[in-house]
């Protein structure tokens, strides 16, 4: 057995044992962090492996969330399917939208994909306000009573298992022939085409898979906190995803995973206290964005790659 496998097993064991030592409120946060990590690694699956910057990943988080929420509670559109079904449908719907958008935008090279995806979440957010009888407008709505789990402990394990399954699936994908071809497309589109790879097809495939996991994560978040709201589409969430993935190191899956966990916990936990101690006219977001700029310039390959390089030498 390889050492890395052993460590992975150990890590999973620790995560599974956390509820024994950690108070419920932090457990709740860590579970939420796992769901956030799914969003981040699914973003990496697209951006890190195809080099196409998706600025509208939250479109799919929000879509998954709203669709699952609408299907779960009979109070909105009169349908009440089992939460597990709703979550999967949420993921599939996100994947479908991802497919349509991918087919349209990924034919073109350059920045078009980034520009279009940057606008997408705004379009979807408008739908929430305009058809607010269905989507609940700015306020969102609650699915309390129709969610998958009702204790923090069960929610925590649900989030952990979902993260592990998604992680395993995405690792499987990037290590398969698909993953290799995606990286070929990223590194040189011309070269990839010359050896007979249908670059658009692979980019769309990566986008669809990435959207699917984002949708699942969105739907899971709704089941985790019992409410859905337009902020799941919104720009701040998108930025947090970018921040985590870039700090961790694009195109590594593990890097963004670690980045997601560190950043999300930092932002929701100790960063604010740290900053209020400094008593400067700044907030935690200013600090995070400054770090992002610094990392982007000084080590554009992210902490994870840096770390790997240091360890190798």
């Amino acid at each position: 057995m390889k050492i890395s496998t052993l460590f992975a097993a150990l890590l999973i064991l620790i995560s599974a044992a956390l509820p024994l030592v950690i108070p419920e409120a932090y457990l709740y946060l860590i579970g939420l962090t796992y769901l956030f990590a799914i969003i981040v690694i699914s973003w990496d699956l697209m951006v890190g492996y195809t080099g196409q910057v998706n600025l509208g990943h939250t479109t799919f988080v929000g879509l998954g969330a709203y669709i699952a929420a609408l299907l779960q509670t009979p109070l909105r559109i009169g349908i009440a399917v089992h939460p597990a079904v709703a979550i999967i449908v949420g993921g599939l719907a996100a994947a479908l939208v991802g497919f349509v958008i991918g087919v349209i935008t990924l034919r073109l090279r350059g920045y078009y994909f980034s520009l279009v995806t940057a606008i997408l979440p705004l379009v979807f957010m408008q739908t929430v306000f305009i058809w607010r009888d269905v989507f609940g407008g700015e306020e969102g709505f609650s699915i309390a009573g129709y969610a998958l789990f009702d204790t923090t402990l069960s929610k925590y394990y649900f989030a952990l298992i979902l993260l592990l399954v998604s992680l395993a699936a995405m690792l499987k994908i990037v290590r398969s022939r698909i993953g290799l071809r995606l990286m070929a497309v990223r590194d040189s589109e011309e070269l990839a085409e010359s050896i007979g790879i249908d670059t658009t097809r692979y980019k769309v495939l990566a986008f669809v898979l990435s959207s699917f996991f984002a949708g699942i994560a969105g739907a899971a978040i709704v089941n985790y906190r019992y409410t859905v709201g337009p902020e799941l589409y919104d720009i701040p969430l998108m930025l947090l995803v970018i921040l985590s993935a870039v700090l961790g190191g694009l195109g590594t899956i593990y890097g963004p995973l670690i980045g997601a966990i560190v950043i999300y916990l930092a932002k929701n936990w100790w960063l604010r206290d740290l900053i209020s101690m400094a008593s400067l006219p700044i907030n935690d977001e200013i600090v995070l964005y400054a770090i992002l700029i610094a990392v982007g310039i000084l080590m554009p390959r992210g902490f994870f790659h840096e770390l790997q390089d240091r360890l190798k030498h």
Binding site: V53, L55, I293, I297
Partner: peptide, 11 residues
């Protein structure tokens, strides 16, 4: 390209 987007966006 990726970092240009990210750095200017962060700024």
């Amino acid at each position: 390209e990726v970092m240009v987007i990210i750095v200017t966006l962060a700024l």
